[in-house]
Design a protein around this nucleic acid. Sequence first.
DNA 1: ACCGCCGGGTGCC
DNA 2: ACCGCCGGGTGCC
Length: 834
Amino acid sequence: NGQQWLPLTLGERNYSRFPSSDFYSSLGLEDVLSVGDTSGAEEDTDSAILYGTLRGSVVGLRYYTGIVNNNEMVALQREPNNPYDKNAVKVNNVNGDQVGHIKKELAAALAGIMDNKLALIEGVVPYGAKNAFTMPVQMSFWGREENKEAVLDQLKKHGFKLAPPLKEWGFGSKWISGRAGPSYSAPVHAAVQLTTEQLKSEFDKLFEDLKEDDKSCEMEGAEALGTLLLPHQKQALAWMVSRENSNDLPPFWEERNDFYYNILTNFAEKQQPKNVLGGILADDMGLGKTLTTIALILTNFQDGKPLPVEKITSDKCYEDQFEQHIHQDFHVNIYVYYGSDRSKDPSVLSEQDIVLTTYNILATDYGVRGDSPLHKVKWLRIVLDEGHTIRNPNAQQTKAALNLEGHRRWILTGTPIQNSVKDLWALISFLKLKPFTDREWWQRTIQRPVTMGAPGGLGRLQSLIRSITLRRTKTSKVKGKPVLELPERKVLIQYVTLTEEERQIYQSVKKEGKAAISRFFSEGTVLAHYADVLGVLLRLRQLCCHPRLCINTSSSNNKTPEELRETLVNKMKLVLSSGSDEECAVCLESLTHPVITRCAHVFCKPCIFEVIRSEQPNAKCPLCRNELRVEQLVECPLEEEIDSNNGKKSDQEWISSSKINALMHALIELRRDNPTAKCLVVSQFTTFLSLIENPLKESGFAFTRLDGSMAQKKRVEAIQCFQSSQAGSPTVMLLSLKAGGVGLNLTAASRVFLMDPAWNPAAEDQCFDRCHRLGQKHNVVITKFIVKDSVEENMLKIQNKKRKLAAGAFATKKPSASEAKQTKINEIKALIDL
DNA sequence: ACCGCCGGGTGCC
DNA sequence: ACCGCCGGGTGCC
């Protein structure tokens, strides 16, 4: 359509390259040994205390353009390469413009403190407005308790001494102008920290009482949408459109006699700061965020006008909207970008109305070389679907998303705050909301005041969130009526008893595994052998499903390099093909380009390279502290190979298993009672799904299949086919647990058979929500098959513990390394009955 | 006077 | 900078 600007939509959705398992992440391994901290720069600022304050001077003002108001916050930045003084410390204003330097005698004292990260030094300029050559700066020193002495010593060596903390000091702007002058009278304990419970309940209030305010207007979607919106979706649309077209000031800015003031930092500028022409749509899963966003794109495409296209056929389908529409005949240009095509002229992307891609493609494309076509286009609109996945600011994905260019920026997420205020920063930063894009200002103006319980801290956070976020839960009401009225959902546990023969195999493998694991325990090397432990547990889980799933992996003694390599590749395949979302323990995101270490731990290639680079020459595995060498890393073979290796070994005669029998019994009974009822048969093991195909055929079930290895076209076909209500359409879908991402809509199903429990209960819940969501007409019954007296039963127990933990764990501090380790060890013990 | 004092030149790191 | 510091000019009362 010759549009110059385009929306870009990002999401995990159905493109996830690697089907996955939650091994490490679900066991919480990422918390162990402080992994994920490769940069070393991610100071744990939440536990910082205020050492004291010091008055100093900023000099050289006349050489720089940056200006500062009274009581304005400034940033201190080391400048080790300054040709005149290696101790130089720059002073920048909130905008990042240099204001001057710290006077050299003081800089000499600060340099060591800053370089060794002994303390965070924050400045406020009490009288900044009219200074021509120098200005005073009040500095606060923050750091961990154990560094306090070192900092005081270092200062003393240079003849400086900290004054006791001033009340309100750390939060900057509260400093009253007028000649109050610092009062040194009242040393303050770092303000009282809120308890977890307090913090949680305060956060919950964030989204409460969204009264009938501006967020309750409704707006019809453009005709091209071809689908009617529900009332709450019309509200969301109206809100989104008004945000995109608004000329309001961003939160915390005021206009004061021809200047725009930021009331948190006291920064002022002549030019009106840009508001975010976007925000966070944080509705609960299943309320139709994606549909609403499509409506936004079509209705408010550019310059407040709809996209000039012909009507889109309506099929009342709330999910996979983008994908489904791709295959329909209408005139929105949608392009699915699969990445890696560097030669591609960005103009190919520019010619589209909508480009769809995934975080992994975005990150890989961006990470390898800086010339991804995605980053050469100025986008009209950027939408991050499942936007909470960018919460780790160090991850490639986050950086790649942040650096996309485009003014209207949206985040769609059902869980805007997963753990703590910290999570929010990545989101806010993506939105490019001034001045929070810079971590320091977020930290000083929002995060610290909140976590330290400063008066007004939560209020700030609330007004920030409210001004950029719309959130409704499933129980929210629109005009007195619940937003969603979902049919009932029941979860049944169906215990399965193994046959004598199956039990024998199970017990022998268990005995062997248990012996190995207890040896690891007595040697204290459980974590070093983590891959082996997981291997044992995996084999047991597989044996609960079907004896044939259990591939024999010989134990690893005295191998040739070739054999070793093969073993590693097999292990990695094991991990990657076991059906869920493996995460990299460094970036805590989905694996971008998996490689396996000699010690059999799997990471993103760029992540582990960075670890090795930064820890040279003696890099250690973040998970087990074994030696790491680049040349020993083994890359993952392509996904196709994984699957073909895994799936088609069925020359052998087919045999059933207790679990398959139980499933078939239930399916046949269900068909007898209700021949048109549709169901999902879910497993983490795609090989298991393949084995189930056999009896389905024999018993005359029409079925379809969806797993992570399928090409995009085939997936869409499978979904459409299953969702169809035509006579003869499949009544069973074989589904791999994590196939498809949260957007997947399988509301045709009203029964779910979960063949094997997942480590992470959230993964199961997400899977259930694929049919128990908007559009579901029937009550949903979920059956979990659990083998009696097995690792599966133990997994259930751990799941329950995790559920309880998750319910009360909001905003808790990460457990310490040793606590996490202990939890993990206990879990392993519980799983294998030790 | 190898001082003090004066007043002009000058100025971040 | 209406400062401090530098270094040249200068020198009883």
